[in-house]
Each structure stands twice: as structure tokens, then as C-alpha cells.
């Protein structure tokens, strides 16, 4: 559930393919690590690369984050947040 304190950082990677999508996503996770871990920030990644819907959540989960994949019209939204 989103509270008033939470902030969503949006990264639009539509047009990019693997593995650069993964590297960009990981780069964003690394840079916002503290905020993500404390639950203050969620990362919303928009991608139209189907492979990224498995590689990004898989790696993020190994790093201890919770991920959700929501199909949108022509792209996917990947929401990465603190593990509850």
C-alpha cells in the first residue's frame, strides 16, 4: 500500500533490450538501495522487452526485493519495493 511518505521513481526503458535493460535497472536499484531497503522509495520500471520481465524480477528478488509485474498496453510495469 502506498503511503504519503513513499516516493516512486519511474524509469522508462522502453526501446532498450537485454541485457542493457537489466544493467540500467540494476544501476537504478544500486543507486537507490538505501531508500528502497527502508521502504521510502519504490522503483517503477517501464519496459517493452519481454525478457526483462523475468531477468529484472529474478535478480531483484535475489537481492532481497519484492517485485510485481503488471502488463500494460504494449509494455510492462515492473514495481520493485522493500520485502515486507
Amino acid at each position: 500500500m502506498t503511503t504519503e511518505m513513499e516516493k516512486i521513481i519511474e524509469v522508462d526503458m522502453r526501446g532498450q533490450v537485454c541485457p542493457s535493460t537489466l544493467l540500467v535497472a540494476l544501476d537504478n536499484i544500486n543507486r537507490n538501495r538505501k531508500e528502497l531497503s527502508s521502504g521510502m522509495v519504490k522503483l517503477l520500471i517501464k519496459t517493452d522487452n519481454r525478457d526483462a520481465t523475468t531477468t529484472i524480477p529474478g535478480t531483484a528478488e535475489n537481492m532481497g526485493y519484492k517485485t510485481e509485474v503488471v502488463p500494460r498496453d504494449g509494455f510492462y510495469e515492473l514495481l520493485i519495493s522493500q520485502q515486507s
Binding site: L26, N62, M63, G64
Partner: peptide, 16 residues
């Protein structure tokens, strides 16, 4: 990429 991946691996290791 090495920097990114190694930082990610650090997190994976920590989580592990």
C-alpha cells in the same frame, strides 16, 4: 557494467 553487477552481487550476497 562491472561496477553495476559487482554492486548488485554485493546486495545479492548480503541478502543471501
Amino acid at each position: 557494467p562491472l561496477g553495476i553487477i559487482s554492486q548488485s552481487f554485493a546486495q545479492i550476497l548480503e541478502h543471501s
